[in-house]
Amino acid sequence: MSGAGGAAGAVTPFVVLTFTIAGLVFVAVVVALGAALSPRDRARSLTERGGVRAVLVLGGIVPAIVVAAFFMLSLVVTARLTAARAPDVAVEVVGHQWWWEFRYGSAATANELHVPVGERVELRLRSADVIHSFWVPALQGKTDAVPGQTNTMWLTAERPGRYDGVCAEFCGVQHAWMRLVVVAEPRAVFDRWLARQSEDRRPPSGPAAEGERAFLGHVCVDCHTIRGTAARATVGPDLTHLAGRSLVGAGVLRNDPAALRAWIDDPQHFKPGAFMPAVPLGVAERDALVTYLGSLE
């Protein structure tokens, strides 16, 4: 909740104010309780009527006024957050057990959402299986991805940078590693990125070509898409431009050759219960595959 996002920007002062009010109320109650508990020899005198009046005024009317004011404020903020405005960019977000699919028209990527800085991004959330919830704490509150319906949320990143996000709704055994990153970058950089993402993979050469054959010759092809090849399955993330992403396994490892090798050798070690099996590959074949995946920029 650092206030880097436009939406969080509307929320942050509200949150600060909320904590301030709550803090004041808490201090008032503790002081009153302390005064009530102060040691003494005799009971204080209090008429029946005086007691009831104190209870109703201090306990009923005062809280009612504070709550009503706070409630109105919260409605004003809600209205601002949900005000309909045409978005600059629209992205389809699909929650899967346990990764995020992001579709920009024909381009598809996973777990790394690129957005242009300062622009209003509309996310259309769906789910391929169970309920997930999209949350990037620094940018925006949550919206659930519910199977059978499409929910819409908006976010705006006011400053360039990388923002961590998570799945916030328990969605099964690897809920913990269903993370994502939002990359906010200047419009020009974003456009270049998107143009690249829309392309097919560049045909590989050398060991990478061997890697592609390994990919297409094993079960990898049953789950993943690499555009430009025969791999078109949509169970797992689209890998066409995997090398451009910073993380693998929805956040469980960084994307470098050593980690990728370890991941392919035994995904279950890093993400027990995930649907990716360990694929029986020879060492040479595996290394060629890693080289290939590393070439998919």
């Binding site: 909740m1 509307a10 509200f14 919260s74 903020v77 809600t78 509150g141 949550k142 919206t143």
Partner: peptide, 8 residues
């Protein structure tokens, strides 16, 4: 109970 706070 406040909607925007809860979303967060």
């Amino acid at each position: 109970a406040a909607v925007p706070f809860d979303w967060q």
